[in-house]
Simulated assay, not measured.
Amino acid sequence: MLLVSQVMFLLLCVMESVRTTSVSPSLNQPSLTRVRIIEVGDDYDEETSKTTATPQSPGVTTSRVVRRPCYYDPCAVQTIPCEKISAQTGCLCPGLTGPEERPEPPELREVKLDGSGKVLVHWCAPRSTVTHYEVTLSGENKPLVFKENLRKGAIPELKVGETVCVAARNQVGISEKSCKRYEPPQPNPVALSAGIIAGSVGFLLLLLVLAIVLWKRRTCRKGRMGDAEGLGNPSYTTEHCDEENK
């Protein structure tokens, strides 16, 4: 009887050991961890964030969310503020210094004559908070004021050789000036060469026509003199000359 009980106890131990080792291996797998990666762009004031799941086992997908920079050209007229575009599309606006800091100077690109005869000034905005732009001419203290979204302005009665300056202003103060001297427009060398060639050809054609007219008149005079002496040219009569002169 004792032997039977010992055998039964041994069988129970073996069955318990087998049940423990047959547990699903999925319970022993490590859990997934979520890693948050923050990327900061050089020219933009908000974070470009990426949220990704880093799997410890194969077969797990990765999710990623990326915010793109807004299209912003500092040299073009801003018809729609970047903040409004960001609110609609979720893009990132470029970083600007706040209204409590003095703005950086704008970049004066060019001063040129446009098709209407006015001198046009073109500048690029600084990466600063700006309330308006001030354009001044050499020898004048009163500036021309342009709105903060503008990048071009017409300057009336600007003389060749005068200096044009543009500065940005906000509540703190005005920036340093960016200046250029207005130079006369340079002629297009291709158009100039074409004009010279066309003028030369026209002048040569005019000389050729004049030479033909003078030659015909001279021939008519010789024919008339021959008629007066009785030696007229039968192939070129004075009647033919009279018709040509008409």
Rank of each mutant, 00 (worst) to 15 (best):
V135W: 00
A125E: 09
V213G: 04
V130E: 01
T238Q: 07
L12T: 06
P25D: 04
V18I: 15
V14N: 00
G202K: 07
F9T: 13
T238N: 07
Q56F: 07
N170G: 00
C165D: 01
E183R: 08
L204K: 04
P156F: 05
P69E: 07
S57T: 14
Q29E: 14
A87P: 00
L204A: 13
I197V: 14
G41D: 12
I85G: 01
E83W: 06
K246V: 13
G199N: 12
V160Y: 07
S22A: 14
S22F: 06
C70F: 05
N149H: 09
L144E: 02
M225T: 10
F146N: 04
S128R: 03
L27V: 15
E16R: 11
A53C: 10
S24N: 15
I155G: 02
R151W: 04
N170Y: 00
T131Q: 06
N149K: 08
L108R: 02
A87G: 04
L96V: 15
G153I: 12
V209M: 07
E157W: 08
S22N: 09
E229P: 02
S22W: 12
P30M: 13
E162L: 11
I196A: 08
L205D: 01
R224F: 14
V190I: 15
Q78Y: 03
L205S: 09
V18C: 07
V135I: 05
P99T: 02
R224G: 08
Q186C: 05
K152A: 06
I174H: 01
K112I: 13
Q56I: 07
S178F: 01
K180P: 02
S235M: 14
T131F: 06
T21E: 11
T136N: 01
E162N: 09
N188S: 09
A76L: 05
G195Q: 14
K142H: 03
I155W: 09
T21L: 15
R36T: 13
M225Q: 13
V166F: 00
A87W: 06
H132S: 02
S57W: 09
K159V: 10
A53P: 03
C241V: 05
S235A: 13
P143T: 03
S235H: 13
G230C: 02
L2T: 12
V172K: 01
N28T: 15
D73V: 04
M8E: 11
R67A: 12
E46P: 01
K216C: 08
L12I: 13
L150G: 05
C179D: 03
A76P: 00
P184V: 12
Y236W: 10
T62N: 08
S5H: 08
P143H: 01
P184M: 09
C91G: 00
N149W: 08
L12S: 11
N245Y: 14
V40D: 06
C70H: 05
Q6D: 05
K159F: 05
E16Q: 12
K118P: 03
P185M: 12
E239L: 12
R67I: 11
E243A: 14
V145P: 01
L214C: 07
